[in-house]
Simulated scan of single mutants.
Amino acid sequence: MDVSELLDHVKDIETFLVFARALAADRAASVAQEKIDPSSAYGPDAHGWENTSIESFLEGAIAWAEDSDFGVAQGLSSANPWQQFAAFLYCGKIYE
């Protein structure tokens, strides 16, 4: 299961940690692939990583949270804060 599919299954601390470990592994794989075959400077890194520094990662995640009311505007339930935080982390990867 890829990271975005794992995100859909986050419901508690255990599934959140599975997701977080997979996201970390996805980033490590992206870094390794970029060392072998660098992506264009005008697009995302391997595995779709738009934000490759901690600063840009956090800026993307925060921008997503502000723009989407922490996902509520996109249909995330505030009754599942584990999934909201997982989405926050995932959007650190992809949100510009």
Rank of each mutant, 00 (worst) to 15 (best):
S40R: 09
C91L: 08
P38W: 02
E55W: 12
P38R: 01
L7G: 02
A29Q: 13
S39N: 11
S78V: 15
S77G: 09
A29W: 07
S56M: 13
A32C: 08
E59L: 14
H47E: 13
L23P: 01
A24D: 02
E96W: 11
S40Q: 08
T52D: 06
D2H: 12
L17R: 07
T15K: 02
Y42H: 14
S68H: 03
F70C: 10
S40A: 09
E55M: 13
A25N: 06
F85H: 03
D26R: 09
Q84C: 10
D2S: 15
D37G: 06
Q33W: 10
H47W: 11
F19D: 00
D45W: 15
S30W: 09
G60Q: 06
V72G: 06
A22L: 07
K35I: 11
Y95G: 01
L7H: 00
V18S: 04
E5M: 07
V3Y: 00
L6I: 04
E66I: 12
A41V: 09
V31Q: 14
Y42G: 14
A63Y: 06
E66Q: 13
G71R: 03
F19P: 01
N51T: 11
F57M: 07
D12N: 10
D8L: 13
K93H: 08
N80S: 08
G71F: 02
E14I: 03
L6A: 05
A79G: 07
K11S: 05
S40L: 08
M1R: 11
A61I: 05
E14K: 02
A65S: 06
D2K: 13
